[in-house]
Design a protein around this nucleic acid. Structure first.
Lengths: 119, 119
DNA sequence: CAGTATCCAAAAAGATACTG
DNA sequence: CAGTATCTTTTTGGATACTG
């Protein structure tokens, strides 16, 4: 069976988007080092709203990248962690993020050149 | 200098989003194997509109990931290619995409389980 | 061919209030 | 704590028409 993210309509495209999207990438990245609870995640992923975090976690859980472990205690405690597949994905995502971060000086220079040429 | 994509306001976040975003990831992926002209790209990146492709290319060019080579001929010919930094980025992105595509059967199964539990 | 400009529809995101 | 529900605003996206 063939999956090609370049073809619109291919189910791999939404999944890739969940992983690489704004909040997805940060959520997966945050879970790389271990399980986190909902509000811990919220603090880690700077700027995310409750709504977006919940939505993001649902999508990732549905894709089988994130595992949700809810203890039926009071107050409730819910731990989110990466599945094995989630971990593999996270490692490749981290490689990408690390590259971008390490090359930001270069990117910033390019942006300045671009802007000054068009100003 | 420190760049942390997890911090809102960090300039690395927009750049990561350009690369990982819906059209950015597909555009970079398409350019991995060599230069392409505007309309070649349009055909390759299935589903992209002129507007979105132009916007995406501007962002990637500004970030220094894509090089734009415009011949002043008539009709005009414009070739887009990856810069060295763009290439490094593309390789890491490809590693991620390949993983997701190869594991789609697993993802699809997880989705079915998730959906049938909540239906 | 390689775009830009404009307008409109749709979707995503954010703020807020509320619940088990 | 861990969310859901709802509403509003903002952003994004697509269609179309036009230009060098």
């Amino acid at each position: 069976m063939e999956f090609n993210v370049f073809a619109s309509g291919c189910p791999s495209r939404p999944t890739l988007e969940h992983v690489t999207g704004r909040w997805g990438s940060l959520t997966v990245g945050a879970l790389r080092e271990g399980p986190l609870r909902f509000n811990e995640l919220r603090r880690r992923v700077d700027g995310v709203s409750e709504k977006m975090l919940a939505q993001t976690l649902h999508a990732l859980e549905r894709d089988g990248l994130v595992h949700r472990d809810a203890q039926p205690t009071n107050p409730p405690r819910v731990d989110y962690s990466l599945t094995p597949l989630g971990h593999e994905t996270a490692e490749r995502l981290k490689a990408l993020i690390d590259l971008v971060e390490s090359r930001m000086p270069e990117v910033l220079e390019a942006q300045e050149r671009y802007d000054s040429r068009l100003a």
